[in-house]
């Protein structure tokens, strides 16, 4: 994946191509494979909901985040209006904002152009976010946008192909196999999120989120993720501040 076809012209970007390739390579990994299995499941859901191949592939490209797509398809399935669907998806996607805020300072340099960051932000979803935070320490800072671009583009295009393939093959997996496939996603998130936590606050936030997520789901469904994030993350940060102040004293 090294873009050396037109040497003289591409000289300054030579290393960008290298890191774009590295990012693309990072898509073909355990997390990438798990995401593919999740998309196999999603394609089945969309097909059952009566969406066409083209509509589902289009949705994969423009929405990208899997939970948002599941919400969108469920709303379509229940005959919801455009307004209802837009509201439900908007609400369920608030979580993308803090994820983008957290990752942006890690990949920009003084020279990074804003539009590049806006383009790259479209690729932010749980898998690429976790993989990037895990791999960034070994990627030189000026190469991180190229790396993330390679990772995001590859994941997105590859899963568009997977979705189309599921539609064309019309294959249905036996129930225990799909159960195992669906279970891959939370297990991957659970382990890699713990591994990518930078400080004690991160691990604490994870424990709080695991507990508060289901609690708020029963209590205030719809706002559950946002509340679990704000309250769980906020209290983890409070504990982190408290501990550090005691260490200083």
């Amino acid at each position: 994946m090294e873009g050396r076809s037109e040497p003289g012209q591409l000289q300054p970007d030579d290393r960008s191509f290298h890191w774009f390739g590295q990012g693309a390579g990072a898509a073909f990994s355990v997390p990438g494979l798990i995401l593919v299995s999740a998309f196999v499941g999603f394609a089945g859901l969309a097909k059952d909901a009566g969406l066409t191949l083209l509509q589902t592939v289009f949705m994969t490209a423009v929405v990208w985040a899997l939970p948002a797509k599941v919400v969108l398809v469920s709303t379509i399935l229940s005959g919801g209006s455009l307004l209802t669907a837009a509201f439900a998806v908007t609400l369920s996607s608030v979580r993308l904002m803090p994820m983008v805020v957290a990752i942006m300072p890690e990949m920009r340099t003084a020279k990074t152009r804003q539009w590049v960051l806006y383009m790259l932000s479209h690729f932010v979803a749980v898998t690429s976010w976790v993989v990037a935070l895990e791999r960034f320490p070994e990627v030189p800072r000026p190469a991180r946008t190229a790396f993330y671009g390679g990772l995001g583009t590859t994941l997105l295009v590859f899963n568009m192909i997977v979705v189309a393939a599921v539609f064309l093959l019309a294959a249905r997996l036996p129930a225990p196999v799909s159960a195992l496939l669906i279970f891959l996603t939370p297990m991957y998130f659970l382990t890699s999120l713990w591994g990518s936590a930078r400080e004690m606050a991160g691990r604490l936030a994870m424990v709080f989120g695991l507990i508060l997520g289901p609690v708020f789901h029963l209590w205030v469904p719809g706002l559950d993720l946002m509340l679990a994030g704000l309250i769980g993350g906020g209290s983890a940060y409070a504990v982190h501040l408290f501990v550090r102040r005691r260490q200083k004293a």
């Binding site: 803090p98 957290a102 999120l193 789901h217 993720l225």
Partner: peptide, 23 residues
Amino acid sequence: RAIATALVAAVIAKLVLYPAGAL
């Protein structure tokens, strides 16, 4: 980052406790 992490953790817990489909 703590807020984003707690959010993703909440997604994980929901995927395990209230799963979709065959799971």
